[in-house]
Design a protein around this nucleic acid. Structure first.
Lengths: 224, 224
DNA sequence: CATATTTGACGACAAGCGTCATCAGAAATA
DNA sequence: TATTTCTGATGACGCTTGTCGTCAAATATG
């Protein structure tokens, strides 16, 4: 009587195959589905994408899809998170690499890195178009990411101009609005096939930030 | 041999029923489905809404749905258009009704009317969350509406401050960004259950506009 | 070489959906 | 009153989708 037990090969158990360990295989399969999802969600759209399509695009079968993700919504969440992580990292790296550390230069560097990142149409479409209206769970993830970006913006802004004569609530709304301005610019850029020059988008949004800082400064002066 | 021909009762042909003419009935049925769609799309969401649900909510059967709309996407387009028409009308009416016609007063009146309109959570959700990522056709409608709002904003702004030292492309992007700021504010307000006071949203977005005008003014001055 | 595991191909199944047809009752019309 | 039209209820159909099971080939292991 043999142990005819394939067991639950969930994790590190399992023999090597094709020169890859079980863990390496699982990770590669996961990446393949992430890539396939980014491509399909970013072209035909999330709601038009089926498990079969994902498997065909990834070159794998559904067994390995379900081993890595609960369902397509789970995959969407993973792709959204990874994409936003990537964009944020690009922005932070560009800001950190700024040599002339004037406010305008830092803002320009951050915005330029952002718009350079969203030149990947698939990512932009997934992160700003496809994730909306999917489910409460995805909605929460989207909202948290927007707020995270807003906080990042506030951090940068407060380093440049520490005097915000606003209570927390209005400050939150203001930064959210700024994120919305930048987001809508990116969406519009995508939907017009990236016709405008990236520098134009940077310039327009930098002006918006500069204007806000100016208006806040005047209010501080008035209040004094 | 009778004329057993119900004919295509598409339009004004047909007898009265329940005290309503055929045209009146058709219009009422259409309204019922518009209401049902606004409620369902605005609560459970567009993709979770089926024809059966719409019929149950409207108190009608599917025959009258297909008589008025091609499919649920067609209904979504109609609801989006009507909602945006309504919001725009409210804003224009508020602007027209402004007594003290200073720039700040006009902007405040328009923004206040806008945020008052989006206090209807169903409309806001449909117009800013549910329509995204549905189909190319709906995407086009959304984009056109955003651009229409942007042009409205530009019209108002140019009446207040005619000197825009920007080429057309950058002016377009700037107004789109402003619409994005206002839109994101509205979305965030919705997603936080309208916690903040409406006046706070008006104030934050008015400041953004004021700041932009200030920045543009400085650039004009520099260029001179 | 013999056995166990991994992989891919294929098919099957239930469920949900859009859509249409039928039928009986209500209301209008001649 | 007899006939026609309108309305709602019900069921059926074809299709797609998620999900699971089976089987043979490829690969690893002892």
């Amino acid at each position: 009587m043999r142990m005819a037990a394939p067991k639950s090969a969930t994790a590190d158990t399992g023999r090597t195959y094709g020169g890859e360990s079980a863990a390496a295989r699982q990770e590669r399969q996961r990446r393949q589905f992430l890539d396939a999802g980014l491509t399909l969600f970013g072209t035909v759209g999330y709601r038009a994408t089926t498990v079969r399509m994902l498997c065909k695009e990834a070159g794998l079968i559904d067994r390995y899809f379900y081993k890595n993700f609960q369902d397509t919504e789970d995959l969407l969440a993973a792709i959204h998170g990874a994409s936003m992580d990537h964009i944020e990292a690009q922005v932070l790296a560009a800001i950190a690499a700024t040599t002339t550390r004037t406010p305008d230069a830092i803002v320009a560097a951050g915005l330029d890195a952002f718009f350079a990142a969203v030149e990947d149409a698939r990512m932009t479409r997934v992160c700003w178009l496809e994730v909306l209206g999917v489910s409460p769970r995805i909605q929460t993830l989207y909202t948290q990411r927007i707020q995270r970006f807003a906080r990042l913006l506030l951090d940068v802004a407060q380093q440049l101009q520490p005097r915000w004569p606003l209570d927390d609530e209005e400050a939150d709304i203001t930064t959210i609005a700024l994120v919305g301005a930048i987001s809508q610019s990116a969406m519009h850029w995508l939907l017009t096939d990236y016709h405008a020059a990236r520098a134009t988008l940077v310039s327009a949004n930098a002006r918006l930030l500069r204007g806000l800082v100016g208006a806040l400064g005047e209010e501080s002066a008035d209040r004094r």
